[in-house]
Amino acid sequence: MKKYLDIISDLGEGFGSYSIADDSSLLALVSSANIACGFHAGDPRTMASAVEKSIENNVGVGAHPGFPDLVGFGRRAMDLSSWEVTTDILYQIGALHAFVKAYGGELQHVTPHGKLGNFSVVDQRYAKAIAEGIAMFDPSLIVVTMPGELAEAAKKKGLRVAYTIFADRTYNDDGTLVARSNPHAVIRDPDTVVERVIRMVNEGKVTSITGKEIEVNGHSLLLHGDTPGSLQLAKQIKNALMSAEIEIRRLGDWIN
């Protein structure tokens, strides 16, 4: 059976005159993009540029809403009410959608960023609030997340779900990601990353940080563009996937 995989990356995460990743180069490699919506990163000009370039490259555009935390890049915990989370989600999706519409594209998916994304996997209250906001805006959108509470809340709302797997992040035994505070949270060796990716896609398995074999189920492979050597690593991963006869396709073209 033909295997498909979406390659996705976080884009538009600059602010003003500052930028983090080489968005233009990454867009030549990925099939979908998570674009920051102004809360953890991004501003109107950055968002407009990221959306325009994504559409030009036939890359699926997704909203990447996060906590209102520019200083902490959305990676700090915030204790928000369910209504605050839902309305923050609506606000951010709506902001990005304005640019998508202006440039003649369509919004493909939503995936929460950073600490909000982490909470959504394990916290039912946050998960339900996020799913509510997405469903209120557009129930045809794909929810991109890890297995957990958000995936279940989204399914109950009738939303399509795509699971994320991570190229360069280590996993805990329960399938969650190792916290970035751990020095082994990010895998630096390119050959190790490529080998793990091929195994995750072909076998549905990965070795956890403790050496345990765990199952992973993924539709989208997330590549981080803000780590040293990330662009070259992305090229290696894509070449390896193509050599393994795994077809790279954006989510909207094959997720039911």
Rank of each mutant, 00 (worst) to 15 (best):
F119L: 15
R199S: 14
G204T: 09
G225P: 12
Y18K: 12
V193F: 02
H184N: 15
Y163Q: 09
H64R: 00
F137A: 01
G218F: 00
D168L: 09
Y171D: 10
D123F: 09
I8K: 09
F67Y: 15
E52Y: 15
K238S: 11
M1R: 04
D138M: 05
A154N: 02
N182L: 06
L70S: 05
G74Q: 10
G94Q: 03
F73R: 07
H184L: 09
A135R: 09
G211C: 12
L11I: 12
D189I: 03
G74D: 11
H97Q: 11
G229C: 11
G148M: 01
A240I: 12
D168W: 14
G229V: 04
A127T: 07
G252M: 04
E195F: 02
D88S: 13
A135C: 13
D191E: 15
V110K: 09
R188P: 00
A244V: 10
S19D: 12
D69V: 02
V144A: 13
A50V: 11
T87G: 00
V61K: 00
S24L: 11
M136K: 13
I89F: 00
I246S: 09
A151H: 06
W83S: 08
L27I: 10
A154Q: 05
I35L: 03
R196M: 02
G105A: 03
K2V: 15
M1C: 07
A21S: 15
A95D: 07
V161S: 06
S17P: 05
V110E: 02
V85A: 02
T164P: 05
R45E: 14
H219T: 08
L222Y: 03
N118V: 11
A167G: 10
H40D: 12
S208Q: 08
K205L: 14
Y103R: 06
Y163F: 15
G94V: 08
F137W: 13
W254M: 02
E13H: 12
A98L: 06
P68H: 11
R169A: 05
V194W: 01
A167T: 11
G66I: 04
S82V: 02
G62D: 02
E56W: 14
L96F: 02
Q124L: 15
D10E: 08
G114T: 01
N118D: 10
H40N: 09
G117C: 05
F15T: 06
E245P: 03
V100S: 07
R199E: 14
L26V: 10
H184V: 02
G225T: 12
T170Y: 12
G104E: 08
D6P: 11
G105Y: 07
V216P: 06
L11M: 14
E195V: 06
